[in-house]
Write a protein that binds this DNA or RNA. Structure first.
Lengths: 414, 414
DNA sequence: CAGTGTTTTTTCGAGGCTCGAAAAAATAGG
DNA sequence: CCTATTTTTTCGAGCCTCGAAAAAACACTG
């Protein structure tokens, strides 16, 4: 089980460390890398000269404009955009989006497409996904050989091995091994990730000051999803993508949830639940298939207008989220929260009840120290997360390959 | 942040690996160690001969009786009991227990003592703990210099740094930095751990087949505690010992909990809650301070006798535990559960309602595959866990010391 | 009971890696 | 143009692990 460190692993790990340092810092000098990795200058020099020869890093002469320091100026090291490229595929309700991203993280090309995911057959869903990838790969400006990885994100449950979608609210079909399908079709390594986990990954790269070691990303959308980073690592379940915050039980035998069970947090805080309560349809009413973003915005506007069923619906959503977070905080200690998705724009309506509920829970001891941030648009986040995930795979597994693929518990975000 | 691997770390880590292999396997030969660590025979030979010279390992000639294999017989390596010793201190409600344990894990001496922890002053509580340790250290048979570590376990919340008890139900006093107190008093490194976490550690050593990478230990006692192992590592909160399963919210605004809040799982499943329901005192009744184990056993007997308030009380406990586990399983996926403590002996009364509740939750999809095991006596478990935790500290930090103490996320149980 | 086969353990040289010290490189200031 | 300063590279030393071969320790056989 626990495996010793072999001599050749040393170089591999330190190579990966140098690449990671460059990806994080942007344009660090060798001296800066030596400082962050606590390796000697000689070692960094040796490794980086290797990496430059291999075309993974490049020297970017003007390290920083106007650095009027006395001695030899630092030479910035940066990722060579042409070293590789990755492709992201984000499949969400009625929407499919692909992008090609170079090794430095810049979008090279993209394509988006509306679909009717809820009614499509299994074959045509898979077909659309492979077709859109094929079109991008056929782009004449693109060197297909450089595509080192495809990362696909989807709402729903994926397996820990990042091979398959197990279940998703956007389609009735289950157990689609997208990763295997892509690998077979294109011969490119692929992974299948959960959308909320990718949101969390992206937040960490966007704002490492706020989202560093411990934080929570909650998707307030038709359903409720969560991405959780604990101690610097993405938290996943043991078998699935895990973190099904939306299906923690808020009230035993409570409102009917889209998942068929009763009393889940989502059955109070999902868009369909807010809609159902605002329209006073009763907690047993069958969840509607979809509520448009425009409708949700109208609902929020009505709730802000005056005290009526709309406002009460948001209050109930806040209460469910608050108790849910309270239970979560009992397990993991409070942490900063990012609310993402359409209903994050209505967080002003949700927050009072949420804070009131959380104050009733174990996590509420530090209620005031729990801070919330909102981001209404989830799609760019998910894509960024996918891109980072794929690029880091390239960093580690392709540009710093080890003899054996040593599976480490959890997946480091950095 | 992420730190490179230096050349001298290599030996340190591989030394630690060899020691860990011996601790796990008991009496492995060098060849077996080479196999489990995937290091070469030469390396294992070099490291183990070092360790033998240093008195950490010993060669135990008869590797196994009657091994009628053909070639040169394997020489078993075992931990030298005299290499070091550790001390465990378990402080629970009205009870204090200390033990000295040799490097091989055998109890050398012990002492137990009844206290009135609920009413004692802060000073006398600390005084009793240091006094009992001092008495053990004064044992003429004991070489005090060999005590390398003191591990103290307590019910309640400890900090992640394992220095202090932040809050405990066994005493009104808070924020007692026992680890620092012991270090100052005796000059021996000390740690402060949560009791349920130590239960989990011990279960893993007792039955590594069942309790390997992912499992849950739940203490059914006056309060409800949890120790959680995920992906082979003890799961702790980010600031505290975490995993406050007992204070997840079962019913918003529900029964009064000992913690002062309402609707916690514990307010239905803790001994005092079962007692309160069985005696039909109402959910708002102030929790009693303590219910004796004998009273609880009588309660269980009455519940088995016939359908009355006692049986209903256990049913409610099962329901709360079931929904709580269901919410937990939504986050981490289902895993084997060990029920520990007095009320684990009444698990037959709890299980039906528990399974029924869990079937209503997201985790319930695999309800049948969730298996429960019971262990009525928590104290030995807690002590074993403490001992292992302290011994592994000695293995890693004293017998395989690195230049820098590199804090890894989570604490490996192995 | 000596010889042979088998398995474990040790020995030894080779190859790699990181480190520290010193040298080389590149610039600003005088 | 020279000096001070900082960054980067070079080079030898010291470890560490590895593979191959040797040594050790026993069972089996005739």
């Amino acid at each position: 089980m626990s495996v010793g460190i072999r001599h050749d692993d040393l170089r591999r790990r330190n190579r990966a460390m140098v690449i990671a340092a460059v990806r994080q810092a942007g344009q660090p000098s060798r001296t800066e890398i030596a400082a962050t990795t606590s390796l000697s200058h000689s070692t960094i020099s040796a490794i980086s000269s290797d990496l430059i020869v291999e075309g993974i890093l490049t020297e970017s002469k003007p390290s920083e404009a106007g650095s009027l320091k006395r001695g030899r100026p630092q030479v910035g090291l940066s990722l060579n955009p042409e070293a590789a490229a990755v492709m992201t595929v984000v499949l969400s309700l009625n929407f499919l989006s692909v992008a090609v991203i170079d090794y430095a993280g810049q979008v090279v090309s993209e394509e988006q497409r509306r679909l009717d995911t809820l009614t499509m057959s299994r074959e045509s869903l898979i077909g659309e996904c492979t077709a859109i990838v094929r079109r991008r790969l056929a782009d004449p400006d693109l060197d297909v050989r450089s595509i080192a990885r495809i990362a696909l994100a989807i709402q729903g449950i994926t397996d820990t091995r990042a091979r398959a979608m197990l279940w998703s609210p956007i389609t009735p079909h289950t157990d689609i091994a997208f990763a295997d399908i892509f690998e077979d079709a294109f011969g490119i390594p692929a992974i299948m990730e959960n959308d909320c986990n990718m949101m969390a990954v992206a937040l960490r790269w966007r704002d490492p000051d706020r989202y560093r070691d411990d934080f929570i990303a909650i998707l307030l959308s038709h359903g409720i999803g969560m991405g959780l980073v604990l101690k610097g690592e993405l938290f996943t379940g043991t078998h699935s993508s895990g973190g099904e915050f939306g299906h923690m039980i808020h009230r035993p035998n409570g409102a009917l949830c889209r998942c068929g069970r009763r009393g889940c947090v989502e059955a109070y805080a999902g868009n369909y639940a807010i809609w159902r309560n605002a329209r006073q349809m009763g907690e047993d009413a069958e969840p509607v298939a979809d509520v448009s973003d425009a409708d949700m915005r109208a609902l929020a506007a009505a709730a802000r207008e005056g005290d009526g069923p709309e406002r009460e619906a948001y209050r109930k959503a806040g209460e469910a989220l608050g108790y849910g977070l309270g239970s979560l905080f009992a397990l993991i200690d409070p942490a900063p929260v990012a609310m993402v998705g359409v209903s994050a724009a209505a967080f002003d309506l949700i927050e009072p009840a949420l804070r009131q509920a959380i104050a009733q829970t174990a996590g509420g001891q530090h209620s005031k120290s729990i801070s919330f941030d909102t981001e209404p648009n989830e799609l760019p986040l998910i894509r960024e997360g996918c891109a980072m995930r794929a690029l880091i795979f390239v960093d580690q597994e392709i540009f710093a390959p080890g003899v054996q693929a040593r599976g480490s518990a959890g997946k480091s975000v950095a």
